[in-house]
Design a protein around this nucleic acid. Sequence first.
DNA 1: ATGGTTGAGCGTCAA
Length: 266
Amino acid sequence: MRIATWNINSLRLRMGLLGDLASQLNPDVICLQETKVPDDLFPMADVVALGYPHVIHRGMKGYNGVAILSRHPLQRLDIAPDWCGKGDCRHIAAMVEAPGGPIELHDFYVPAGGDEPDRAVNPKFGHKLDFIAETRNWFAARGTLSRAVLVGDLNIAPLEHDVWSHKQLLKIVSHTPSETAGLMEWLNAGFVDALRHFVPDDQKLYTWWSYRNKDWRVANRGRRLDHVWVTPDLRGALKEHTVLVEARDWERGSDHVPVCVELALG
DNA sequence: ATGGTTGAGCGTCAA
């Protein structure tokens, strides 16, 4: 079972690149964030033509938006609350048919949080902290989960080597101590960091490079904002991972690159 | 400290 996640930054603009992702990574399931398409305009026919007939999506005009595309049947899970009461299309979940039984799959798009890491002057930062506290509490209250996978653009790079300079980013939103501690609490509410299962903590690992760097590869000022978490019972099933770094050079690409994890289920 | 770029949609906000 191959599960990919990608902040596509507009699904309709990058439909062709989604095809490149599908052919290069061969995922069974693709989780998207920032689709930026209202549900009534979702390009269902194009997605089905790519080989993903089982689709759920939650979109709105202009911002946000998440979708799960699958080769295997899905059953939508509507058990989570409306995070922070905003109704803003940042989470979608499903039970996915898989060898050995269904997998519970969560696709998240955590608020970016604005520029100023101070909730007193920047409500977007407060929203981000509240969001990750709510999600952590909700998963913790569910007790020990099994056969669950959580992916998405979590907009936080939690570890020192998840950013190009730990020291220079400590006051930059995405790597401040309140965010990284909050994300680790959420992770520890029942998950294992699948990408760090494959790549040791002392090695640099990025999934995002700003549009604002002319030559992103030379500067290499990346951050690991995109994540794949699995419940501990699936740790032994983790088979391989891919961070599709070359996608950052795709013509009119996203500032995030796709990430894929293969699980040996059954 | 600042500025740099992109997308949605048409002024400006969000990232």
